[in-house]
Computed example of a mutant assay.
Amino acid sequence: MEQSYLTKVIKERRAIKKGYTDKEVKEETVRELLEPAIWAPTHGIRQPWRFIFVGQDRLPDFAKKVASTYPEGRRENRENYLNEPNAILVVLMEESEIPKQWEENYGATAAMIQNFWLLAWEKDLGVVWKTNPHIYDQKVKEIIQAGENEKIVGFIHLGYFDEVPAKKDRISVQDKFTVY
């Protein structure tokens, strides 16, 4: 059976965690990728996401501020880590006090991130969704001026790359599938 283009992109997509080139990730590019990405399924068309783009020019200051929320002995490491990508897209979601809506919002935001990732891959832009401890830190929420009812879903590290990481196989659907 011939594989569709979409199947090919889904299977070839990788997490680009390091090895970024010096090519700048432009705000305009990220906006262009987000326009179709936000067509992810979203219950009640709530579209619970919000984005904060940290470009190459602002990244050193941003990294220093976020790293300052870590214990003294880890700050330099965290600052270097946050300066590795060429840009960071912070993705936030609107939290609901209703558990069902909270889960629907998280699912919609995760689907939107996957859409963004696939669209970025198609343009040779590397992406990795990071959920390091700082996304749960109230001080980081203050640094980025997140609302009281907003959750940081992740820091999306962005950068162009030369080497594609090796494929990591998945467990077969046959091993995860039953019929009721």
Rank of each mutant, 00 (worst) to 15 (best):
K23V: 02
Y180T: 11
D169S: 15
G107R: 04
Y106S: 09
P41K: 02
P71H: 06
R50H: 14
I135Y: 02
T42F: 00
Y160M: 02
I144K: 04
Q56V: 04
F116N: 03
N77T: 03
Y160V: 00
N80T: 08
M93F: 06
E72N: 09
W39N: 03
M93K: 14
P71W: 09
L33N: 02
D124E: 14
G147Q: 13
Y106N: 12
R75F: 07
E84C: 01
W129D: 03
K18N: 05
P41N: 03
P165D: 10
W49A: 00
G107W: 00
P48M: 03
W39K: 05
G19K: 06
I156L: 13
P165G: 03
E150F: 03
R74F: 13
Q174V: 11
T21K: 05
E35P: 04
V173I: 05
V30S: 08
Q174T: 12
Y20S: 08
I52F: 08
E32K: 15
V9F: 02
V153P: 06
A67E: 08
E79S: 01
W39E: 01
K151H: 15
I88E: 12
E148Y: 00
S68C: 11
Y20F: 14
A111Q: 00
E148F: 01
T7Y: 08
G126A: 03
N80W: 00
K64H: 14
